[in-house]
């Protein structure tokens, strides 16, 4: 597991999620802090492609051996892709939370929601 990091190019949600925006599609995942608190991830229960998710509501579950955590949506939209690699290797979420450990891609239903998210500095402040 790498050291704590919070890349500047991401937007953050206070429930320890991040979003990487590319036009109308955002890639979502959990932050370094979230995966570190949870411990080794053993199971990721994704939503189905095509379902809609709502900002601030749980859209998936992630499990370690002794804990279950809801994954909260930082934005609203429709799931267009689920990371297929997490089925066999959920620990990728620990190894590379901002890269190969991404969880879903979402077509944004309200781009203005992005304005409510935090930048890396603001998110770090929450952690402190």
């Amino acid at each position: 597991m790498a050291d704590a990091s919070y890349p500047d190019d991401l937007r953050y949600h206070a429930e320890h999620d991040w979003a990487r925006v590319d036009g109308e599609v955002a890639t979502l995942g959990i932050t370094w802090y979230a995966q570190d608190s949870l411990g080794e991830v053993v199971f990721f229960d994704p939503p189905a492609v095509g379902t809609t998710i709502a900002k601030d509501e749980p859209y998936a579950e992630v499990e370690s051996v002794k804990a279950v955590s809801d994954v909260v949506a930082p934005v609203s939209g429709e799931i267009v892709e689920v990371n297929p690699a997490l089925g066999d290797a959920p620990e990728t979420i620990n190894d590379d939370p901002y890269g190969d450990g991404w969880m879903v891609k979402v077509r944004l239903s309200d781009v203005s929601e992005l304005d409510t998210l935090l930048d890396a500095a603001a998110y770090r402040e929450i952690l402190d």
Binding site: F43, E63, V65, K66, A67, V68
Partner: peptide, 12 residues
């Protein structure tokens, strides 16, 4: 697979 169980998942 203890995350199914009451001591972890509680009301769920």
């Amino acid at each position: 697979l203890q995350t199914r169980e009451q001591h972890i998942r509680r009301e769920k």
